[in-house]
Design a protein around this nucleic acid. Structure first.
Lengths: 232, 232
DNA sequence: TTTTCCTTGTGAACGCGTGCACAAGTTCCG
DNA sequence: CGGAACTTGTGCACGCGTTCACAAGGAAAA
């Protein structure tokens, strides 16, 4: 087994992008990718690709490139994509329903196997094929499906409660869409995505450019940003 | 007018969090916040709060703290929150509909005023009060509502096309949920959020912890992460 | 007025991430 | 077999962001 040393967080955050880029190459077929190509596919630069991959091991061939299929396998292994992580969605409002249906999740090894909602009208039925349970059933649902990942898509007021229940039930990774700061015990991995905040960042640049130029936004900023998030 | 110098991107990304934290204080009422309190409310540390705010100007009082109401005003001004930025959502699938309904957007000054979809059954009707137009109508819709911000929630195959049309129509800020790399001209601000990628990052830590410990995840990682994204 | 207490604002050090530039290694052609 | 062309892997330098630690300043009490 290849004992991988410490991989910088910034690199970890890019590994899924490389994996996504490798979708351009068919599975099971031998093909060669250069760091340059992969960089384009992932939206980063070539030096970063090479350095990131070097943290995983020496998987390329100098003068040639990387074998696409093998590289996919190795990145998948590093990310633990071989495993399937069933997830539970808390809050079946607009966003929750959309997330529960999001095909990208199951395609990437994160099938939504259950949902939680407080609305008695929703509890007990299946929404888009996903069974909805009451909050009280969370612990048993988590145990039964061996769920390690939870998504919080509740209203802000209910988010901390949902997080607490998830943690109590044994969930150790949480992705939250609630626009508040959540507190979770040590050892629980929390990722917060606040969509309105993201827009406000866009708004800042917009505002600045409007002030700088007359009304037209010609003087530019950067042109491409990728997903990511830094630890606090 | 306070001419603000260059504000680091990392600081800009936190300003909305501070603003969100200040929601805890009523509008129009004089109250004092210390950097420590605000740090807790925003989920960061106090030194960062002070440094970030110092980029905006000298708004605090030594020995006392910041006036919550005034601070909110100043951060709002820096972010351009005074303005309202109408947005258009491209792709009224599950995610698009959820985003179009997301109350957090309009609350924060980003009302969804129009949607675009290729499905003839959707075009011409209103979905949740939002008029849906055909892609060909995009330019006139953007002009009419003076739209500067677009959201891409289309399937991946249609995303680049949607981006191109948005740019042609004059949109200069784009938030994309499509799991592909988009190319936009210089001067256009693009923010990409790939939800599956976010989950895979969680999955990586999960995987690592499972390998390290037996099966229980007690040995911990960090406990709190906030939204953010770095320029490429 | 002077002293004490408190919190901001910031200079400076540290650490991480990025990108350059090149040595090391591979393939292919003559 | 020698050399040209190419691409990886990485040492190193640079810059940004974070954090510490403290001086500067203000309020309140003595």
């Amino acid at each position: 087994m290849s004992s991988i040393g410490r991989i910088p967080e910034a690199s970890v955050a890019r590994l899924p992008l490389y994996l996504r880029g490798l979708d351009a190459f068919p599975v099971g077929v031998t093909a060669t990718v250069s760091s340059e190509e992969l960089a384009t596919l992932a939206g980063v630069n070539a030096a970063k690709v090479r350095k990131d991959l070097s943290y995983l091991g020496t998987y390329g061939t100098r003068g040639v490139g990387y074998d696409a299929d093998f590289l996919r396998f190795e990145i998948s292994r590093a990310l633990g994509v071989a495993n399937t992580w069933p997830i539970v969605v808390c809050g079946m409002g607009n966003l929750g329903r959309a997330l529960a249906n999001h095909s990208g999740f199951s395609e990437r090894g994160f099938p939504v196997v259950a949902a939680i909602d407080t609305d008695p009208d929703k509890v007990g039925v299946e929404i888009d094929g996903i069974p909805v349970y009451a909050p009280s059933a969370l612990a048993s649902v988590v145990t039964e499906h061996e769920i390690a990942v939870g998504i919080i898509a509740t209203p802000p007021e209910a988010a901390q409660g949902a997080a607490d229940r998830l943690v109590d039930a044994g969930v150790v990774s949480i992705m939250s869409f609630a626009p508040i700061v959540l507190t979770v015990p040590n050892g629980v991995d929390l990722r917060a995505v606040d969509l309105a905040t993201e827009l406000q960042i866009l708004g800042f640049h917009l505002h600045r450019d409007r002030l700088a130029n007359g009304a037209h936004a010609t003087a530019g900023r950067e042109q491409n940003l990728s997903v990511g998030q830094g630890p606090v």
